[in-house]
Amino acid sequence: MGRITLEKVTKSFGEVEVIPPLDLTIEDGEFAVFVGPSGCGKSTLLRLIAGLEDTTSGHIRIDGEDATDLPPAKRGLAMVFQSYALYPHMSVRKNIAFPMKMAKVPEDEQNRRIEQAAKALNLTDYLDRRPGQLSGGQRQRVAIGRAIVREPAAFLFDEPLSNLDAALRVGMRLEISELHKRLATTMIYVTHDQVEAMTMADKIVVLRAGNIEQVGSPLELYKTPRNTFVAGFIGSPKMNLFEGAEADKLGAHTAGVRPEHIEVGDPASAYWSGTVGVAEHLGSDTFFHIHETGLADTITVRAPGDVDYKHGDRIGLNPRMDMIHKFDQQGLRIQ
């Protein structure tokens, strides 16, 4: 079981309030991702849940019980740190055994769980090595192994993939997702990378300056961002947002359209037109960065890979009108 509830939780460092009153529920078995730009308070929020920081006010409940004043060890949570935080002087086996040793789990039970975790994480051959002798991906797996064996109520991940190179990151992302499917344990995952959030989460919590901007499933956030911040943050490449006359014409203060919802065409007959700046060819797709559209400095368009325009070419743009997002003066979605 691992249902985590935050009630009116706040956190201040001295005079500075980093988390204004915040309510949030994470259901048992859910994969929740806290995402937001750096300094948005997502890591602080995770550390409050872990018990590594005191809440200034409010309550944190784990499975209904008030855990606000419990020390980290008593909360039944496991955490995977950004730096992995492996104990460099212990072998992999001892690293994984450490939480069980602290909990005084019987030795044979310890060994059983270590073997099981090692097998699941492909670490069997490395159990007697020191962390210093492992690659980044392997260290990451040891950190996860150390979390698994505790059989925690919930796993907490603090930007676990940010120290890995791009290729490994995709692989580990899948592994963590599969782990979640297999264990069906609550996981809370902090990242600044919206791709990780979209691909892994059941529930995404978008944070800015300690405030929750929106909570929802990846597709909800993609389809109906509640405000311009979420609209700009979720999705890659970013949504094109623009103000002024063209937005007014659509009946909005700010309007937005995603690069994948614009088709390119003949500039003479198209809805908008502009000049191609840079064309990025990915093979499957081509991203055009287009200037002089009268909308914003640059409009990004995602076109099929075989569409070919060159720097300086005139290009026509046809947005899918049903996919245009409209926001009011305060940046809130108009529905």
């Binding site: 872990a50 590594l52 020390p71 980290p72 060890a73 949570l77 496991a78 955490m79 740190f81 950004q82 730096s83 935080a85 492996l86 104990y87 460099p88 450490f98 939480p99 602290m102 909990a103 150390r146 505790r150």
Partner: peptide, 17 residues
């Protein structure tokens, strides 16, 4: 790194441990 000590705390180690 402070994270290693926090990890120990999460792993259930008391201050002494």
């Amino acid at each position: 790194p402070g994270e290693i000590l926090e990890a120990a705390r999460m792993d259930g180690a008391s201050l002494r441990e």
